[in-house]
Structure formats: structure tokens, C-alpha cells
Design a binder for these strands. Structure first.
Length: 246
DNA sequence: AAACGTGCCAACCGCTCCCTT
DNA sequence: TAAGGGAGCGGTTGGCACGTT
């Protein structure tokens, strides 16, 4: 059981902790050739590791922009707030903490913050270790305000969804569904992508808040394109993270 | 000093996403 | 439109370090 068993699946590959020599080989290779093509990296670099292992090692420890050292109180506060907003979406949380990785934040949360009482500024409570941010549960950010159901992360990418999205178009993921609509937050972009749960109830749009990449936006009567047809949408009122957190 | 318990975290696995053909 | 494969994400594991008995 354990690593010994799993490692034997690929007898020719090294597993476990990386050595200094391996780190140097990988760093040198990526310095010359750049990131990407992870499946071929081990072969080209001469490492007896799988591509996923190389990618993980590079992203979590070898990159030059990795921030070493303990999580600061400010970072801790931000992690807590972002976790209240986003749930266990470690990569999204890490994206707002320069130099920190999703793995590091995940470990920090599980070892230092999980299960401990947290501030309740956003009307939420601490999230159990294994709780998932899914469509069946209330959003971590849901408030008492009936017009503010949740805060939703936005990725800078368009997704068009069908009218039946609430039934089927969740791209195979159980924890969110994807939506798209014109973004006034980024005029240069035609679309934003949302992650929404409990969005549509009997074809009515019931959400009001979401977070774009750089700002938070509050919508009073949002709309979206559904099968080429626009549902009503109001002018967004931009609000700052500070306002949201205060 | 040795045994045991606990916490931390690097790394792995399985699943999903998404791009290309 | 579907299939295949690479990339990415989140949950989990296991070894090590350190503290306690």
C-alpha cells in the first residue's frame, strides 16, 4: 500500500522527492526551451519522471517568481476572504496571491485554517475540509440580501450556453455551470465566463453578483445570451473588493 | 534515550477541462 | 460533431520533523 505500490506502476520512473540534480536538469531545460509540452519534457530533458511530476515541480517550487517563506498575516486574511468567496478553488485563490501556488494555499488551508472559526463578514461560516462548492449547496458567499445571491469568479473566456444549461450543460463538472454574457467590465471582450450555481430557476435569472478577473461587479438585473437570444441586463455598478470585504 | 503521537507538506492520483484534428 | 490527448485542478497520501511521554 502507499507510495511503494503506486510507484511500482511505472517501474522505470523516479517517484517521490526530487533531488537537487533533477531540479537543476528541469530548471535548465525550461530556461532554454520554456514551459509547456510537459509530456515530452522528461524525455527531452533526460529525466525519469512523468510529465505531470515535472510540471508540478516547476510550478510549485522551481519557478523564479515563487514566493518563499511563511504565509503573512495579510495573506492569511486574504486567503480566508477568498475562500469564503470561491470555496476550494485553490488555483483561483492562488491567482490573487502573487508568488503563492495552489498547492501551497491548499496545504495551508488544510493545516492551519480548516475547521477553525472564521470571520463572518460575508455572511458565511468556515468551510469544512471536504465541503464542495457545488450547485446543490449554497454559495459560500451567499448573503441575507435577496438581491445578492452569490459572488462568482469570472474567467476571461467566452462560453455560450443553451437554454437547458440548468439541466445539462455543466461540462461534466458537478460544482458549477458555465454561462456567458457581454461584459461591460472589459469592453474589449465580447464575453465573460461565469461560474454560477442555482442561477436559473424556472428560466428566471436569480443571480446578481459575480467577480470578474480584476474587479467585482454588481448587477441588478443581469442578462445573458441564450441560444442567440439576449435576456434583459442592466448597467453594471462596479464595486471594489474593499467595499465587498468591508 | 527511546518510543510514540501529531502536524506539516511535497508529491501522487484520478478526474475534468479544453484544444486540436 | 466527436474523439483523442495534453494540461490543469483538487483531494489524498505518506514520509519526515518535531514535540511529548
Amino acid at each position: 500500500m502507499g507510495k511503494t505500490v503506486r510507484y511500482s506502476k511505472n517501474a522505470g520512473l523516479h517517484r517521490g522527492a526530487w533531488t537537487v540534480a533533477e531540479d537543476m536538469i528541469l530548471t535548465d531545460y525550461i530556461t532554454i526551451h520554456g514551459e509547456g509540452g510537459w509530456t515530452s519534457v522528461p524525455q527531452k530533458a533526460g529525466l525519469k519522471r512523468c510529465g505531470k511530476s515535472c510540471r508540478l515541480r516547476w510550478l510549485n517550487y522551481l519557478r523564479s517568481d515563487i514566493k518563499l517563506g511563511n504565509i503573512s498575516p495579510d495573506e492569511k486574511e486574504l486567503i480566508i476572504k477568498l475562500h469564503q468567496l470561491l470555496g476550494n478553488r485553490w488555483s483561483l485563490i492562488a491567482g490573487r496571491l502573487p508568488g503563492r501556488t495552489d498547492n501551497e494555499i491548499k496545504n495551508y488551508w488544510n493545516t492551519h485554517l480548516s475547521g477553525k472559526p472564521l470571520p463572518n463578514k460575508l455572511g458565511s461560516c468556515s468551510t469544512p475540509k471536504t465541503q464542495k462548492f457545488n450547485a446543490r449547496s449554497k454559495s459560500p458567499s451567499q448573503t441575507e440580501d435577496p438581491h445578492v445571491l452569490k459572488v462568482i469568479p469570472v474567467k476571461p473566456k467566452a462560453v455560450k450556453v443553451s437554454k437547458e444549461l440548468h439541466k445539462s450543460t455543466n461540462n461534466g463538472r458537478s460544482d458549477h455551470q458555465d454561462f456567458a454574457f457581454p461584459s461591460e467590465a472589459s469592453p474589449s471582450k465580447s464575453w465573460c465566463e461565469l461560474f454560477v450555481d442555482e442561477l436559473m430557476v424556472d428560466n428566471d435569472l436569480e443571480f446578481l453578483d459575480f467577480t470578474p478577473t480584476d474587479n467585482f461587479i454588481k448587477l441588478e438585473s443581469p442578462s445573458m445570451e441564450v441560444n442567440g437570444e439576449y435576456l434583459p441586463i442592466s448597467t453594471p455598478n462596479f464595486i471594489d473588493q474593499q467595499d465587498l470585504f468591508s
